[in-house]
Design a protein around this nucleic acid. Structure first.
Lengths: 118, 118
DNA sequence: CCCTACCTATCGCGTGGCAATATATCGGCA
DNA sequence: TGCCGATATATTGCCACGCGATAGGTAGGG
């Protein structure tokens, strides 16, 4: 029932994922969880014990902002991305791209080796 | 003097990098560090306090095998990838690919949004 | 009235990158 | 001879964070 990707893989980019979802528009924790699940093709099953502390951290860092809202039916805590959050999303995305390119280039020879041998 | 990528980014793929380097051929810790540095275009500056425990873990998991060697000049601990290590490299690479594809698809809308707006 | 889904929160555990530190060998240079 | 920087491996303690477990509350249906 845990995540389909190992915990270590997630660590580098969970913030990025959450910020990118919130960049689409405000939402609350539980819905964010479902959105992440859907957007990842059921691969990222973020646990509550991961999600809420993460949101609290992002808020403490002023990357997101929260507000309790009861008018939309049930009482929920809505989160909204801040200007600093958008900025962070930008730099994090850039770092992610650099990182992926780096790993890919390191794995490239392995892939071609695998193609030649058994 | 630390790593150019955040510690959290590294966590998911350090094993993968080390195994991929060892798949090219046997080597010892310090040289592995240099190879990683070179192969990553000076971006992955693995610290000794990260490298050696990592090698010990991989060996404990039978993914690599070590042997002290003095005949090649200085006394060094040479590491060699095992069959299980090659297998792991394969599955880890596959998981990495799936993960990257997942994140990329999640970031795609953000990128196009950024292209349209400011 | 219970049961399931919805919704937020916190605690404790284990993992692992990293700085700091220790130790030892080697080559060069004064 | 003595010192120093590069080479080489190892360990310790710190800290961040994903995760399982647990808890507590609301809403709607059978």
């Amino acid at each position: 029932m845990s995540n389909r990707f190992g915990p270590d893989l997630l660590r580098g980019s969970l913030d990025l994922m959450v910020l990118s979802v919130l960049a689409h528009g405000s939402t609350y924790g539980y819905d964010l969880q479902q959105k992440l699940l859907a957007a990842s093709n059921e691969l990222v099953q973020l646990q509550a014990g991961t999600l809420y502390p993460l949101l609290h951290r992002l808020e403490a860092d002023k990357l997101i902002r929260s507000r309790w809202e009861a008018s939309t039916g049930r009482k929920r805590k809505w989160y909204e991305i801040t200007a600093a959050g958008k900025q962070r999303l930008k730099t994090q995305t850039a770092e992610w791209d650099r990182y992926v390119a780096c790993i890919q280039s390191m794995l490239a020879p392995i892939r071609s080796t695998a193609a030649h041998s058994a």
